[in-house]
């Protein structure tokens, strides 16, 4: 591999990594902080992408659409958590396995609904920044990837500030560690988790907009992102937002280098391969406490 090719691969890997971080931040909250086996997270991203598509049909800019959808997605997340809590979590037992089954079922149902509403064809949106690219330091960079990278940075900053600076944010960090202790601080653990799940789902609105900005989407696409998002959330050390950004970059760069040197057929193996290597060396993730 020539040096020029290497630099190009690393730079596009960094940009791709920003995108991976953006789509994984919600999972870092739901799975990393709350311990909820939220396997439907990538499917909610796809819902965010289709909702963005629907708004774009009305002439709304896709990024603006992503932000506009956040409150609705927060409410969806709250509803989803309440449902999960009432039916599963509250009853105890082997919550990990039953939770996995619940969210798998949810993902499946959502996928079917998406097919019924939008059909199986690929959908995409149009905007000035989608086809264009920017010349930076002699490198050609697609504008849409730069936007994904910038939004990932912004989301990470907002989330980590919220989690460390607000009372609810700090309670979200604590709730999976000891619910009874949190109740003794005067917080209601169920309401705290509910807010956290709402926030995690709200990130799917913006990340979903990015998903359809980066490329066309189809209803079953969520399944392709299970490996990548869980890889990033675990790599991040379960629950660290800045760790999620760094883990996304690591996955992006690794994938880009593997694709450049070994060919695209290796793509699906990269995320799980990376996950296995990290779990073998450092089970608590790279940036975990």
């Amino acid at each position: 591999m020539s040096l020029e090719l290497l630099v190009e691969a690393v730079v596009s890997g960094i940009l791709l990594g920003g995108f991976y971080a953006a789509v994984s931040l919600g999972l870092s909250v739901a799975f990393g902080l709350l311990d909820v086996p939220h396997i439907a997270h990538p499917t909610l991203l796809v819902v965010g992408a289709y909702a963005t598509y629907a708004l774009a049909q009305l002439g709304i800019d896709p990024i603006a659409a992503g932000f506009m959808l956040m409150p609705a997605f927060f409410v969806i997340g709250v509803g989803l958590y309440r449902f999960y809590h009432a039916l599963f979590e509250r009853r105890g037992g082997d919550i990990a396995l039953r939770g996995l089954a619940f969210f798998f079922g949810i993902a499946f149902i959502i996928e079917v609904v998406l097919i019924l509403v939008f059909g199986v064809d690929q959908r995409l949106v149009e905007a000035a920044y989608i086809g264009s690219s920017v010349q930076l330091a002699g490198l050609q960079m697609p504008s849409r990837m730069l936007i994904a990278f910038a939004l990932a940075g912004l989301l990470t900053l907002l989330l980590s500030t919220y989690l460390s600076r607000t009372f609810t944010g700090r309670a979200i960090k604590a709730v999976a560690q000891d619910q009874t202790a949190l109740a003794l601080m005067g917080a209601d653990p169920v309401r705290i988790k509910q807010s956290a799940f709402g926030i995690a789902t709200a990130t799917c609105a913006i990340a979903g907009a990015l998903l359809i900005i980066v490329g066309p989407v189809e209803p079953g696409m969520g399944r392709l992102y299970i490996g990548g998002t869980f890889c990033v959330a675990v790599l991040a050390g379960l629950g660290s937002m800045k760790g999620t950004l760094l883990a996304g970059l690591i996955l992006g760069i690794t994938e880009s280098l593997v694709l450049t040197s070994l060919g695209t057929s290796w793509a699906p193996a990269v995320s799980f391969g990376l996950l296995l290597v990290v779990l073998a060396i450092r089970p608590s993730g790279l940036f975990g406490r």
Partner: peptide
């Protein structure tokens, strides 16, 4: 307020974060 049996701190939060959580109630 109760200082519970076994202390029940938030093990993976810092000392400072544990203290700030103590002030959660309005």
């Amino acid at each position: 307020a109760l200082v519970p049996e076994g202390r029940r701190l938030f093990p993976k939060l810092t000392v400072h974060e544990n203290l700030l959580l103590g002030a959660f109630r309005a």
